[in-house]
Simulated scan of single mutants.
Amino acid sequence: MTGSHKVPDTNKIDAFLGIDVGSLSTNVVTIDKDKNVLARSYLMTEGRPIEAVKRGLKEVGDLIKDKVNILGVGTTGSGRYLTGDFVGADVVHNEITAQAIAAINIDPNVDTIFEIGGQDSKYVSLENQAVVDFEMNKVCAAGTGSFLQEQAEKLNINIEEEFGDLALQSKCPVNCGERCTVFMESDLVAHQQAGVPKEDLVAGLAYSIVYNYLNKVVGDKRVGNNIFFQGGVAWNKAVVAAFEKVTGKRITVPPHHDVTGAIGAAILAMENHNGFVFKSPPEEQK
Rank of each mutant, 00 (worst) to 15 (best):
N137Y: 08
N156Q: 11
G145W: 01
S146G: 07
C140F: 06
M136W: 12
V131F: 13
K154Y: 05
F147T: 04
E153S: 14
K154V: 00
M136Q: 09
F147N: 01
M136P: 09
G143H: 04
S146T: 10
V132L: 12
V131Y: 11
K154N: 09
E153N: 14
C140V: 11
V139H: 04
L148M: 06
S146K: 06
N128K: 10
K138S: 13
V139W: 10
E135W: 12
K154I: 00
C140Y: 01
E127C: 08
A152R: 09
F134Q: 04
A142K: 04
E135T: 13
N128R: 10
Q151I: 02
V132C: 01
L155Q: 02
A152F: 10
D133H: 15
V139K: 13
K154E: 05
Q151H: 07
Q151A: 07
A130T: 11
Q129A: 09
N137A: 05
E150R: 15
L155I: 05
V131Q: 05
K154M: 07
V132P: 07
V139L: 14
A152C: 15
S146P: 00
V132G: 03
L148W: 01
Q149I: 05
N128V: 02
E150D: 08
Q129Y: 12
L148E: 03
T144R: 03
Q151K: 05
A141G: 10
Q129W: 07
E135P: 02
Q151P: 00
V132F: 09
A141Q: 12
G143K: 03
V132A: 10
C140I: 10
L148S: 03
A142S: 12
F147S: 05
E150A: 14
A130K: 15
E135Q: 14
D133F: 12
E127M: 11
